[in-house]
């Protein structure tokens, strides 16, 4: 279903583009046609591109997460295997205390294996809201459906320069009232359709979380955030920095990776 959605969005974009060219060529002058090529894409189109950029059939990445605390910072490194939007498996590589901890997410279920206790537990309910290893991200944040178009209605709000790149500001409003963050704001790179800045809001409009992409990378033709900073704005602190050390898209990942048996291996 999600995959289909993405294809439909792609199709829509092409269809709309074609219609425009036809209309312009038939009716109007050259100067109009120039302006037609640079015609602003719609908010939905932008969001569709963003989704396309974010999601991949599969990816394998090594990520280091640095949690900036009040007094000290600590870094957690992990390697993750992701397939589609429903399956993800990650293993912590360091620090030694966390090394060997594995996390498996299949659809909306999450299991964690801890090597020290040699136990697998399912994270649910209240626990999902706990920060992952003291970071500014909760388990829930990992659990969220990443296809924004599915859950939000976008609206263009304007333009702004972020990190010396021209961005369009997208304001997203949840399509249903059970979405965790009822609204978001995305600063999307005009050319690359890649969000460089993001804000999450509560239903009353209070800013809850922010993301700033400090560095972008490109791999297999895809843009991805190489270095980003998450911040729980209600919490004092310098946020959590996520660095993608290594990423590979559309890799072949065997099914056994996304099984509970893999947790104990």
């Amino acid at each position: 279903m999600k995959l289909q959605n993405r294809l439909i969005w792609k199709g829509n974009y092409r269809i709309t583009g074609l219609l425009f060219l036809k209309a312009v060529a038939a009716a109007v002058i050259a100067i109009w046609s120039i302006s037609a090529i640079t015609q602003e894409p719609s908010a939905s189109e932008i969001l569709g591109h963003v989704d396309e950029n974010i999601t991949a059939d599969s990816r394998i990445a090594t990520i280091s997460m640095t949690i900036h605390g009040r007094r000290s910072s600590r870094t957690v490194r992990s390697k993750s295997w992701v397939r589609g939007t429903d399956e993800s498996f990650s293993e912590y590589l360091s620090p030694p205390r966390e090394a060997g901890t594995k996390m498996l997410k299949i659809e909306d279920e999450l299991w964690i294996y801890s090597p020290s206790t040699d136990r697998t537990i399912q994270i649910s309910g209240h626990m999902l809201r706990e920060p992952v290893m003291g970071s500014d991200l909760s388990y829930e944040d990992f659990m969220e459906d990443p296809v924004l178009s599915n859950i939000y209605k976008p609206e263009l709000e304007g333009e702004e320069v972020v990190s010396e790149r021209d961005c369009r500001i997208l304001h997203l409003t949840a399509k249903s009232d059970d979405v965790t963050y009822q609204s978001r704001r995305l600063w999307v790179d005009k050319e690359r359709f890649f969000p460089l800045k993001e804000e999450w809001y509560g239903s009353g409009g209070t800013l809850l979380k922010t993301l700033e992409v400090k560095e972008v990378g490109q791999e297999q033709g895809r843009w991805y955030p190489k270095r980003a900073l998450f911040n729980d704005v209600l919490k004092r602190g310098d946020g959590t920095e996520v660095v993608v050390e290594d990423i590979e898209f559309d890799a072949d990942i065997p099914d056994r990776v996304f099984s509970r048996a893999a947790l104990r291996r």
Partner: peptide, 15 residues
């Protein structure tokens, strides 16, 4: 001070 909660339907808010 701020309190963050999740309403009956699951949406987060803070005030």
């Amino acid at each position: 001070f701020m309190i963050r909660w999740r309403d009956r339907r699951g949406a987060l808010d803070a005030k």
